[in-house]
Design a protein around this nucleic acid. Structure first.
Lengths: 220, 220
DNA sequence: ATTACTAGTAAGCGAGTAT
DNA sequence: TATACTCGCTTACTAGTAA
């Protein structure tokens, strides 16, 4: 939706247009929007065409009520502002399932990691990680993670090699609980590794390139 | 601010631009906004000129951070959406002080009203009401009041005449507590009558035509 | 790769005005 | 009174491209 139409719809909502019919002339609306009567009239016609509002045109003013569809548009916008200013204990990522190189399995089966997962995040992960490639531009959001307190999984050494420490965040993938694992010694990539007590590809019927939504939660 | 600039700023905020420098090319931003690279570039230049963002232009991408001023713009917008969807226990009116006909004083001095005010809204009003004329278009908001549970002040009869019942809402005027009085037997006008235990014109140094902000609270 | 200028085109605006 | 059309003007958009 064009941004000026959303602005107009918001103005109507502020006047109570979601629950009530509001009585407003295109001239009055124009004043509210700091524009001309003609433009306000055009906006109303456009909003009407897009089924965002319903109008009862009288001889004088018009009675306007915001439709369910219009309310949904506004609510979506509201949720974005909530995300910016209120829901600062979480970050939402959109991404798609990709295949990793199978290393995830090797790591998640190390007894020392497993023990810590059980103790610190409360479950023993199904072997392997689900790799989710986030949209390139969302890499910026990853930077928000570094200021957050994470669950720390300590590194350790075996006879053969050493394993580095890892950061975890409680997370959800398509509403299912689990955690995100971020190796401490690596740059942020655009791939998130999700662990869960379930075999996710089966449980959520996921296959490569499926779109998923991941919510990462912070401790406060 | 132009609505498309606000939309752009919101997009940058969603990527974490309020607290962090975000790394984004005009091409990527264009994708997010479903527009062309040139337009995205122009938006960024405009936002920069208006001091909504600060940019560090590198050879490749650019590092962007939203300024305090930009954050304030977004927050104002957020508060409007809060008003629409969250703060449904209140309505905010802007208006200006006008002189009434002095009837307010007559009413607020009736012992039966005074007694009920004391009991039901917790204070004895300073004699008289402060009349606030709300902007014409905000009359629509008054309609929201009728669905709300109000504090009811009963009517009564004296030897000489009868006094009708009255609805009250707890309210604030410029942050000072008081109440709004709405006669039950009258159409909604564009004048709100505010009562307070203080003489408001003195306490708040108000004179005719001064702009005031009234918040009306509902019981839930 | 980028950013962002120029210039031609498209969309938006509002004065005038019909209804 | 209103709403909303036409039409000339302005603003916004994007392809091409320089830096």
């Amino acid at each position: 939706m064009k941004s000026y139409l959303l602005e107009t719809l918001k103005e109507l909502a502020l006047l109570g247009g979601i629950k009530n019919k509001i009585e407003i002339s295109s001239f009055e609306l124009a004043k509210q929007l700091s524009t001309s009567q003609q433009t306000a009239s055009r906006y109303l016609v456009e909003l009407d065409k897009k089924n965002m509002i319903t109008r009862e045109l009288g001889v004088k003013k018009q009675l306007i009520i915001i439709t369910k569809e219009g309310e949904k548009q506004l609510y979506d916008e509201h949720m974005q502002y909530q995300q910016i200013f209120e829901l600062t204990d979480r970050i939402i990522f959109k991404g798609k399932v990709i295949s990793g190189l199978g290393e995830g399995r090797y790591y998640t089966e190390q007894p020392s990691y497993v023990e810590q997962f059980k103790k610190k995040i409360g479950f023993i992960p199904y072997p392997g990680t689900l790799n989710v490639e986030i949209e390139y531009v969302e890499k910026n959001k990853l930077r928000l993670l570094k200021d957050q307190r994470a669950i720390n999984i300590d590194g350790f050494n075996t006879k053969n090699r050493s394993f580095g420490s890892v950061k975890c965040f409680n997370a959800k993938i398509n509403s299912l609980d689990g955690a995100i694992v971020l190796p401490n010694r690596s740059h942020y990539s655009n791939v998130l590794e999700f662990i869960s007590k379930f075999y996710l590809r089966e449980k959520l019927k996921l296959k490569d390139n499926d779109n998923v939504k991941i919510i990462i939660y912070f401790k406060n």
